[in-house]
Simulated scan of single mutants.
Amino acid sequence: MFTVPQPTRASLSLRDAHLINAALTLGYVLPLYLTKFTRLSFAKSLENDRAHSKGSSERWRDDPAVIKARLVSISVSTVASLCLMHYIVAAGQRDSLNVSERRWDATALSLGFSVRKSDALVHFVTPALFLGPLYGRYLSGDLPFMAYWTFNERTRDTFSWIGIRNYIAGPITEEVVWRSCLVCAYRLAGASNKFLVFFTPLSFGCAHLHHIWESYNMRGRTLRALKPAILVTLFQFTYTTLFGFHSAFLFLRTSSLFPSISAHTFCNIMGFPQLEVELRRFPHRRRQILIAYCAGIVLYIYGMRTWTIRPDSTFWFHGTSNQQ
């Protein structure tokens, strides 16, 4: 079976990898603002900094027309990123592979497009961390087939344009760009596993900073609106970067992109944990809720150490540089 040639020597410089990082990140975000179809529009400044109702002339990110245009934009950006990395991987293996292998096998495996039956448990690592929030939803009767969960409503939400963006297109394209492509580029530059886990997600977090513009405008585009917009965006940057650490680790440990995609989709469905809200809502279950949250953390650590082990991993045990 064909395997990915290991980076015994760097085929890219670290500088080249940084340039690829910048190009792919900007190539994903900037097109969202280049056309009137993908660009958001807002009313003039309001008298207060509270979120306002959408005006007839405004275009918000949840408008179906905006979502459709942006899905086209990010799809084109993602395909372009894959083409670039295919060219780089193929060029680096020109001397060692025949034409057919160079075109397909090396690129697919270098980007983590591999599926193993043994990866089944890996997809439960992220849900394990959310054991506390899942218990909170259980108490609310909001898990599948419980009192406040209906199949028709959930299906409609999932396959609405917002659902397609949040649960399908977003996770797939973002993981392809920031996990498959960027991790591949830095691996070709000889970066260590530690570098890949803790550095590459920073650009993923930065790619969400542009949401400050939306938040600022929706609060009235005033000086007072700037502070909450900054705080919300910084929180989102922190949360997405932390998720990026988790996703990059999964990707490297398993040499497969698909656990990262399923983790991304699951996190988008669950949202940020609301421990304080759940404790206030269910004070008689306070102890059980806290136990569930703690148990989730313990199970997550155990799962990360054991469920992600792949003796045949082509990524994890092959860092060749101490570049920082």
Rank of each mutant, 00 (worst) to 15 (best):
S247E: 02
P228M: 12
L46C: 12
P144I: 08
D16R: 14
N268M: 00
E214L: 10
A189H: 06
S255P: 09
R59K: 15
K54S: 04
Y293E: 00
R15Y: 14
K68L: 13
D157R: 08
I230V: 15
W307L: 09
A106T: 12
D63T: 04
F204A: 06
T241I: 05
A225V: 10
S11H: 10
F124E: 01
P64S: 02
C267G: 02
S256H: 08
I289M: 04
S100C: 14
A292N: 00
R310T: 14
L82I: 11
T155C: 15
R59F: 09
I88P: 01
S313Q: 12
F124R: 02
I74N: 03
P7K: 05
L14N: 11
W161R: 02
Y28D: 11
R187F: 13
R61C: 10
H123T: 06
L196C: 09
L182S: 08
T150I: 02
F195A: 11
V72T: 09
F266N: 01
L182P: 09
T240S: 09
R156H: 13
L279G: 02
R9T: 09
V125L: 01
L19F: 14
E175N: 09
C294N: 02
T265S: 04
L290T: 01
T320V: 10
C267R: 01
C267I: 06
D49W: 15
R59V: 14
E175Y: 04
D95P: 00
V125A: 07
H211L: 08
A10I: 00
L32V: 14
T306M: 08
S11C: 10
F249D: 09
R281A: 11
L209C: 14
S260T: 03
Y167M: 03
T150D: 13
R61E: 11
H123R: 00
L40Q: 15
P228A: 10
L32Q: 15
R224D: 14
W307M: 10
K227N: 13
F124D: 00
Y87D: 06
A80W: 04
S180H: 04
L139P: 06
K117A: 10
R102D: 06
L279D: 03
Q324S: 13
A292E: 00
L252N: 07
G163N: 01
K227D: 12
L231I: 12
L279K: 00
F251N: 04
Q288V: 06
L143V: 07
F249V: 08
V298Q: 02
F151W: 12
L250H: 07
Q93R: 12
M218R: 11
R102Q: 11
C83P: 01
G136S: 03
E58H: 05
Y28I: 11
S180T: 05
A22L: 15
T306C: 08
C294H: 03
A108L: 13
F249K: 14
T241D: 02
V197A: 11
L131A: 01
D62L: 08
T150M: 07
K68M: 10
S81V: 04
R286W: 08
S96W: 00
V197Q: 10
S13Y: 04
A51Q: 13
L134M: 09
M304K: 13
Y302G: 02
P144A: 07
T38S: 14
F237C: 04
T107Q: 03
D119V: 03
L121I: 06
A263N: 01
T107Y: 12
P31K: 14
L252C: 11
W316L: 13
V177I: 15
R156M: 14
A22P: 11
Q6Y: 10
F42T: 08
L12N: 04
